[in-house]
Design a protein around this nucleic acid. Structure first.
Length: 832
RNA sequence: GCCGGAGUGGCGGAAUGGCAGACGCAGCCGACUUAAAAUCGGUAGCCGCAAGGCGUGGGGGUUCGAGUCCCUCCUCCGGCACCA
């Protein structure tokens, strides 16, 4: 407590509150002092706090501030609590917008990206976040994408990267393949031109994420929001059931294998349906049916996604002319094709049980196929006229041979066993998750490091030749193919096996590959390796990760897959990349729409910062509501936060600026105790609120403390040690939220630089304890009076006081109470 | 259709089953000012002069007591969507 003496040695200053006069000054000082640099050799416990890096679109908007400020506050708190905190930032700089700028405006993607990054870096610095820029990662730098390519090669060697024919989203107008996330809206249209997309079969590179489907369902040991876990779980879509073989009558054809979750309904299978793309369709089609089947297959292929996937649409199909045999009752059932059966799920073929599946029911109705109920809600109770989906355990089988009368839940196992015994079935699991298509027919991405030799096929580019560099001066004229395809110099390569001529792969990698490992790179951004294993051991996994929930099934799942795959390659020794995940809400435009340049509703933080200062913008964003909620942007309330900071400014000026009213000893003592109590209550509340991401209530508590300090100052307490302690504590508690003003005032109070390196205030429960409490007294649950008592007042005494209360007696009407309920320290309720 | 999340003053929001509306914004009254701005003090859910009554999307329930728990319905936001 050196405040008084320090204040005495300096002339009192009552400067006007003017954030512009000190904010930039402190940021420059922190940067010069490398205050925010996370050192590998720092002996304190390490904390890796990370927020998702942005795409360098050109300008930071208010949403970036919102997203970054939350984790910055937590990172700063954890640093003050004695941790060696790393909070890095970088840029996810590959991707389509750079290429579009090249097509639309003739700017080189590298140049466009570099200038955007430069501008955004400068904007980022005005936030006053404790980013360690010495660790910055830019994914389009050759040093970075060399590592991305090297990782691709490791995945290839481990059998996790492969090439196969696959249906992809194709825009028929732009003549280009689209990434899944570039197909927008319920009507499945191209994000650039709005044309409905179609599916096309193309050779594609895949990552075998499905190998990890089961492990990705396990969230044990990580603290992630429930909605994200659910979304990933649903996306992976694990279904248990059975695969069953249905022999066909046609000679020389293998049985048709189907997947079903309801093997217990097999006696109700009255037909089979194959996807139009199913490989057996041609062989099963009889001459009589060929014309009809062929034209249906053609129609299904050319149908747009929207037509094909619209579940509301009438079911359509065609009869192949062939029959299969139900393996349990030897019944002859017709084989149809229909596009409601998807080639990419299960086996691409189903046994149709119209009585117990809505889609099969609709199809059977349309083509007049038999419907047989084999599961009944109760014995003898026959539903009709609709599909009846049985799930309840007490539902029983009917019309199912030896299984009739068996509960459905039991029949699933029994029938699967029977099929297994005759060699025509087995329990099976199916997933909705597909392998990850990583190839993009685009220029601005990491080239896939593969060459094709006529003799030796697809070969990895030797590691010594990495990176495969993007050629400069590419021709971006919109020809409909990647600029790399028309670059003869880029295409020409040498087969690493025979040295003969080879053609280079022109697909580049999905940018989600870049972001699946960037958090590893931050640990050793200058390493010649993708990451330095020793540094990775120091920092990983990430302790706290924050970002938008829109990445739930993309980046957040891919990153988990990468870590698990790299672990199995012995390159990492942990199972999950991000131990704790928190999602911020989205800041919408004032019109409640997503902010976008085309809507013209983008809020520009730069103007607000110029007017109110960075601290006010940070605090206002954190004050508007729960951080995970977001909401429409409305800057009108920023004045209140600005006024709060101005009040902090005024109370924290060196003492002597207020005309202190002389107070008597006992009066002073009472006031000091009250101020100390308020201070310690605030320490506890703010600490918990920040760790819980409740920045809005943390600020409310700091406002309350500030208001209490002002009241005490007005009663003449300024200059007391309790007052100084309250102000110093206020500044320390405010430091994570408003780093500039707290540093400035800390310095003005003669405290040692930097406030951000001070210890977080210690909470003393004894000082926070109240002398007296106010107990509400209710009669029949309605508030009638209040009692002021000491916390140790015995219950009998409280009851006596409550019953004596005038206001209470007025509501009792002379009747004795039936019951008196006391919740110690909370309330008294008198029941009549 | 399925899976999540959310409905509280004029507005943003607060509230381990225990005083609904903390903390702010906007408003109103007052002080300072020639005046305004800024600042400071006060006021403030709705109805009512008051006593009092009514109030957390609608309806029902559990409880001494419900914004909070249960059932049901409505609205909005997000995700998935013919996944057998």
């Amino acid at each position: 407590m050196t405040t008084e003496t320090t204040a005495a040695t300096r002339p009192p200053r009552a400067d006007r509150f003017d954030p512009a006069s000190y904010e930039a000054k402190w940021r420059e000082r922190w940067e010069a002092d490398e205050l925010d640099k996370a050192r590998d050799d720092d002996p304190r416990p390490r904390q890796y706090v990370l927020t998702m890096y942005p795409y360098p679109s050109g300008d930071l908007h208010i949403g970036h501030w919102y997203a970054a400020t939350g984790p910055d506050i937590v990172a700063r708190l954890r640093r003050m609590r004695g941790n060696n905190v790393m909070f890095p930032m970088g840029f996810d700089s590959f991707g389509l917008p750079a290429e579009n700028a090249a097509i639309d405006r003739g700017v080189d993607p590298a140049t466009w990206t570099a200038s955007n990054i430069e501008r955004m870096r400068a904007q980022f610095r005005t936030m006053g976040c404790m980013f360690d820029w010495s660790r910055e990662v830019v994914t389009s730098d050759p040093e970075y994408y060399a590592c991305t390519q090297w990782l691709f090669e490791q995945f290839f060697k481990a059998g996790l990267a492969y090439r196969a024919m696959a249906p992809v989203d194709w825009c028929p107008k732009d003549q280009v393949v689209l990434a899944r996330e570039q197909v927008e809206g319920a009507d499945r249209h191209c994000w650039r031109c709005g044309t409905p997309v179609i599916k096309r079969d193309l050779e594609q590179w895949f990552f075998r994420i499905t190998n990890y489907a089961d492990e990705l369902l396990n969230f044990a040991g990580i603290d992630w929001p429930e909605p994200i876990r659910l979304m990933q779980t649903n996306w992976i879509g694990r279904s248990e059931g059975a695969e069953i073989d249905f022999p066909v009558e046609t000679d020389g054809i293998d049985p048709i294998r189907v997947f079903t979750t309801r093997p217990d309904t097999i006696f109700g299978a009255t037909f089979m349906v194959l996807a139009p793309e199913h490989p057996l369709v041609v062989a099963l089609t009889t001459d009589a049916q060929r014309e009809q089947v062929d034209s249906y297959v053609v129609a299904a292929r050319s149908a747009t996604e929207i037509e094909r996937l619209n579940a509301e649409r009438d079911k359509t199909g065609a009869f192949t002319g062939s029959y299969a045999v139900n393996p349990l009752n030897n019944e002859r059932i017709p084989i149809w094709i229909a596009d409601y059966v998807l080639p990419g799920y299960g086996t691409g073929a189903i046994m149709a049980v119209p009585a117990h599946d809505e889609r099969d029911f609709a199809f059977a109705r349309k083509y007049d196929l038999p419907i047989r109920y084999v599961v009944l809600p109760a014995p003898g109770e026959l539903p009709s006229g609709q599909a009846f989906a049985a799930h309840e355990a007490d539902e029983v089988l009917a019309d199912s041979g030896e299984f009739s009368g068996m509960p459905a839940s039991e029949a699933i196992g029994a029938i699967t066993q029977q099929l297994s015994d005759i060699g025509l079935g087995a329990a099976a699991v199916s997933y909705r998750l597909h392998d990850w298509v990583v190839g993009r027919q685009r220029y601005w991405g990491a080239p896939i490091p593969i060459v094709y030799c006529a003799e030796h096929g697809a070969q990895l580019v030797p590691e010594a030749q990495l990176p495969v560099l993007l050629p400069p001066n590419a021709d971006f004229a919109p020809t409909g193919v990647s600029p790399l395809q028309s670059d003869a110099e880029f295409l020409a390569a040498e087969c690493p096996v025979c040295g003969g001529p080879a053609r280079r792969e022109t697909d580049t990698m999905d940018t989600f590959v870049d972001s699946s490992w960037y958090f590893l790179r931050y640990t050793s951004p200058q390493s010649v390796l993708a990451w330095d294993p020793d540094k990775a051991k120091l920092w990983l996994p990430v302790d706290l990760y924050t970002g938008g929930a829109e990445h739930a099934v993309l980046h957040l799942m891919y990153a988990r897959f990468f870590v698990k795959a790299l672990r199995d390659m012995k390159m990492l020794d942990f199972d999950e990349p991000f131990l704790t995940l928190r999602n911020q809400g989205q800041i919408l435009g004032a019109d409640h729409q997503r902010m976008s340049k085309s809507r013209g509703n983008v809020a520009n933080p730069d103007e607000l910062v110029a007017r109110y200062g960075s601290d006010a913008v940070r605090c206002f964003l954190m004050f508007i509501g729960p951080w995970d909620q977001g909401g429409p942007w409305n800057p009108s309330g920023i004045d209140g936060v600005y006024r709060f900071l101005a009040r902090v400014w005024s109370v924290a000026q060196p003492s002597g600026t207020d005309a202190a009213r002389p107070a008597t000893g006992s009066e002073i003592e009472e006031l000091e105790r009250a101020l100390r109590r308020a201070t310690h209550v605030t320490i506890s509340g703010v600490s918990d609120d920040i760790e819980g991401f409740r920045f809005n209530t943390a600020l409310a508590k700091l406002m309350e403390l500030t208001n209490a300090i002002i009241r005490e100052r007005n009663t003449g307490l300024a200059g007391s040690s309790a007052y100084a302690e309250a102000v110093d504590t206020l500044l320390l508690l405010l430091a994570p939220l408003a780093p500039h003003i707290s540093e400035e005032l800390w310095a003005r109070r003669g405290k040692p630089y930097s406030i951000h390196q001070q210890a977080w205030p210690a909470y003393d429960p004894a000082l926070a304890a109240a002398d007296t409490i106010e107990l509400p007294v209710q009669v029949n649950g309605k508030l009638r009076d209040r009692l002021v008592v000491t916390p140790d007042t015995p219950p009998e005494e409280i009851e006596r006081m409550a019953l004596e209360s005038e206001k209470v007696r007025a509501h009792l009407g002379g009747q004795p109470p039936k019951r008196v309920i006391q919740i110690p320290g909370k309330l008294v309720n008198i029941v009549t």
